[in-house]
Design a protein around this nucleic acid. Structure first.
Lengths: 243, 243
DNA sequence: ACCTGAACACCGTTCAAGT
DNA sequence: ACCTGAACACCGTTCAAGT
């Protein structure tokens, strides 16, 4: 007896995606009612991350903050990995509305600025493993960017590449600034260290790097320079795209 | 009694940097001779990472592979964090020689290609936390890029920003391709899933994303398209920089 | 069906020995 | 000075209960 005439049960999305897409897990089953909502769990996790960074988010601490046992969380989430996916979705909630302007540069700049704000608000967003957008909010951001680029001179096959370039730029630019900032606050950035390293740099013959060190370009970035640096790279990319 | 007339002992670099710069730790002290070399430890760690990814590198497994106790490693390395710094240096060993050409675009392309090869050879390089270059090999790469950009039309204050842009581009471009590739091999990329997600995308009104899905642009990137995608973004950046 | 208690196989790190 | 043994405070995850 073959299986062919038994109608294929509609294959479900993997649970990870199902949850991210907000689909009910086991609709209408009965028994003890859950004491938590998935949303409050994710919100709590985001709160922990906002306060102490991604390093302070663990299932143990999360459960603790929710007054539950660690294991109880596995009723709501399949794994730590899925929690991360949901955290990403949380930070990307309410993607910007599709722009209606004809000025694709302005629309793209607006998009990039909005995404950058998400990173600034939830710096841990940069710590989540980059994944191909397949979840609703991530796709919402992609949709908005595609809309912005629609009036650009780009040929169709280049639009996704340009979108990837822009999305990646916002991300890595934020990371660079964040880590550079962390370094500046770090004891290692003491003038002392720079003075210690300088002769080593000279010894290696890195004269261009030495010049940068000498010019103090490695020190004390301010918010103003942060914004200017962000704009700089974005502008170059826009010009490059415009061809 | 003040401390002022006691000559300040020459402040040493933090041990982390000292080791990365190859300076002897406690020169000439005597006692039991070390059974390991720092270099073999780092090489072994890199080997583990090459084989099983960054996730398979732990002090426990590393010590095991070296036939030592975990704690013994602390004679050579201050912390796991320092091991990561040294791993980065390992992957960036022998930075490219400073280019002598006048063609800054060609030189920059060459630089970017060389860095990309490092990522391809040691994919875990992308998993290490990005830090401000203060170690010899990282600075060597920066020096080479600054040299390449020297004949460009960039004003001096923009050179470091352009360098950051290029360095970041190679990194995030690699990450994007790697993760997209991992996703394509992943069961989630089944045609089934795409078919499952498609109606959800429609329901959200993401018509541009839906078009991409329909066109199959989300599927099966090849090495050829990888190279082409890399070139695409690099070319845009170069054009943007050239102004 | 939910939640707990107990347990497992891992982490990185520290301390008090031994040689 | 090096290395070991033992211990600590953490991880994520699984299983067998209890209600």
């Amino acid at each position: 007896m073959t299986q062919t005439d038994a109608p294929e049960p509609p294959r479900l999305l993997p649970p990870q995606l199902r949850r991210a897409w907000g689909m009910p897990q086991q609709p209408g089953k009965r028994g003890r009612r859950p004491s938590l909502e998935l949303e409050t769990i994710v919100a709590q996790a985001a709160g922990l991350a906002d306060t102490g960074g991604m390093a302070s988010v663990s299932l143990v601490r999360l459960a603790d903050a929710l007054n539950v046992t660690t294991n109880a969380l596995y009723r709501y989430v399949d794994s730590r990995e899925e929690l991360d996916v949901l955290l990403r979705e949380y930070a990307l909630a309410d993607p910007p509305l599709t722009a209606t302007t004809d000025d694709w540069r302005a629309a793209t700049r607006e998009w990039a600025g909005a995404l950058r704000e998400r990173y600034l608000r939830h710096p841990w967003l940069a710590d989540l493993t980059l994944t191909v957008p397949i979840t609703p909010n991530a796709l919402g951001w992609l949709e908005a960017l595609l809309a912005a680029l629609e009036s650009s001179p780009l040929p169709a096959p280049d639009i996704l590449r340009a979108a990837t370039l822009l999305d990646g730029y916002v991300r890595f630019q934020f990371i660079t600034q964040r880590d550079l900032g962390a370094w500046t606050e770090h004891p290692l950035s003491d003038r002392d260290v720079v003075e210690q390293v300088a002769p080593l740099i000279d010894a290696r013959g890195y004269r261009r790097v030495a010049a940068l060190f000498g010019a103090g370009q490695y020190q004390e970035p301010t918010i103003a320079t942060h914004d200017a640096d962000f704009e700089y790279g974005l502008e170059r990319i826009l010009r490059g795209i415009a061809g």
